[in-house]
Write a protein that binds this DNA or RNA. Structure first.
Lengths: 112, 112
DNA sequence: AATCAATTTTACTTTGTAGAATAGAAATGG
DNA sequence: CCATTTCTATTCTACAAAGTAAAATTGATT
């Protein structure tokens, strides 16, 4: 059998955020997306650390874009999901679906 | 917003294996289930370490049962998913579904 | 130089993982 | 009957990878 090589749970979420955001994805928007969907506070450091790791594994790539006019601040680092990243996502999803299959958590809850 | 508190990816899988196995769940069967569904090799140490951690967080409980007759080996440690564990699973699932929503990975694949 | 937006760094905790060691029960053989 | 071997299962050890928060830094703009 192959070696285990599953996406970390946060990596998974970050990757999904990137796919969702498309062109709009850079550190700050990724964090926003994550906070919105999860309702939890996400530290920006956690986001960048994970982005760096995903890039290190060649699941995503990044490039710097010149700063937009009419905006303070430094230029943004934009991210793109690579084919390997999409594959990893698809695999994670398949495995989770396989494992969830046939499971109903509300099986024996009190009725009255 | 609340603090992040997401299941680790392997914790998630182990919890799902336990739910799936019900009464039959102990270290060795959990590992089997995981290997079957994932097609990957899972070390037994990884399984127990994770079970211990889940128990430490009160997401599951364990009890020892006397050894079955007609079977070599030592008595088994059986595991049960607690309500908090089911809740954690339900939450993970919801979040993932929310994040997957609207995403189609096959968007722009070459057709010919 | 003050301000703003964004990224990087630092330091640490928690999870994930493999492999060896140990333990309990039953079977075997003298 | 007792020592030893064999099974099955669990625990221990040691380290790598992922997750996280908070502070520091950078680059552009005013």
């Amino acid at each position: 059998m192959g070696k285990t090589n599953i996406l970390g749970s946060f990596e998974h979420l970050v990757l999904l955020a990137l796919v969702h955001l498309g062109e709009e994805s850079y550190g700050v928007t990724v964090r926003q997306e994550l906070e919105q969907k999860s309702g939890k506070t996400i530290s920006i450091g956690a986001v960048y650390a994970t982005l760096d790791r995903l890039e290190g594994k060649n699941l995503i790539s990044s490039r710097h874009s010149g700063a937009d006019p009419a905006r303070g601040g430094k230029p943004r680092r934009h991210f793109k999901v690579l084919p390997a990243g999409e594959l990893a996502l698809a695999r994670s999803r398949e495995l989770l679906e396989k494992m969830w299959h046939g499971i109903d958590l509300n099986k024996e809850r009190p009725t009255g």
